[in-house]
Amino acid sequence: MRYDLVIFDNDGVLVDSEPISNTILAGYLTELGHPTSYEDSLRDYMGAAVHRVHDLVLERTGRRLPADFDETLHSRVFAAFERELEAVQGTDAVLGKLTADGVAYCVASSGSHERIRVGHRKTGMDAWFRDENIFSAQDVGRGKPAPDLFLHAAERMGVAPERCVVVEDSPLGVAAARAAGMDVYGFTAMTAARKLVGANGYFVDMGELPGLLA
């Protein structure tokens, strides 16, 4: 193994949440008078913390989202997670191999701590991730594409950035990893490789990841 720490994005990498959450986000924004398609939501918000939604809507329309936007969005998303969410196929095998090989791993997500934990409980990812290896954009001042979250995770895990590798599926996440001075592999199950500019390599199936990291 070339790395001492593997940092996983959460949404779309560990849990198959992006189709669910972006469908709900697009629908809610449209309901509020900001017409947004599913494809628009993926392009503009995939991999981002919720403050980016507020920022872009204000920038584009001059209008602020309602004060209870986050609470309503999260309640809708969490309810859908309870009904529909599944782990990304192959993640258990990858995490099991890292554990067997004695390689540290963690999750660093733009989502809130509550969102991460709701998804992990539903999918069984809570067997692999505990408080000590879960990091959220809530923990830092700036979310992706700033490097702060990944640098925070590395510091807390006690590993130098150059000994870390990030597994990401969003352009914002790849940019954040590169800004942190870390290698990054792009997961292309939902995002075309051409959109993940700057990644060290790409894979479409989780079964390919151990070979890339070796």
Rank of each mutant, 00 (worst) to 15 (best):
P171W: 07
E82A: 14
V174N: 02
A176K: 01
W128F: 15
G181N: 12
E162F: 09
I134P: 02
R163I: 06
P161G: 11
D126P: 08
Y185F: 15
V166C: 13
F187I: 11
V165Q: 12
R117S: 05
T99M: 06
T188E: 07
R142K: 14
S109T: 13
L149Q: 02
E84Y: 12
G102W: 05
T123I: 08
A189T: 07
S136T: 13
P145S: 05
E82F: 05
P145T: 02
I134H: 02
G90N: 05
A160W: 08
S170D: 01
F135L: 09
P161C: 11
R178L: 14
A179K: 10
A100F: 02
M157R: 13
C106T: 06
A79F: 11
L95D: 00
K97S: 08
Y105M: 10
A108T: 02
Q138K: 09
A127Y: 00
W128N: 01
V167R: 10
G124A: 04
V184M: 11
R142A: 14
C164Y: 10
A176N: 01
S170Y: 01
G181E: 12
R156A: 14
G158Y: 04
M157F: 03
F150H: 03
A80D: 14
G96I: 02
A80P: 09
E155S: 15
F187H: 14
L149A: 04
E132Y: 12
R115C: 03
D131M: 05
A153W: 02
V159A: 11
I116A: 08
M182F: 13
L85S: 03
A93V: 11
H152V: 05
H113P: 00
R156D: 04
E155Y: 04
M182V: 13
L95R: 03
V140L: 10
A179M: 06
S112F: 02
R163M: 06
V77E: 07
S112V: 04
H120D: 04
R156N: 13
A175F: 05
M125F: 08
T188G: 04
A80I: 09
D126A: 12
A189G: 00
E84M: 11
F129E: 02
A153T: 02
R142H: 15
A153S: 07
M125I: 01
R130Q: 10
A176E: 01
P171V: 07
T91P: 00
G181W: 11
G102N: 08
Y185W: 12
A175L: 10
Q138G: 11
A127S: 05
R115A: 11
G173H: 03
M182C: 14
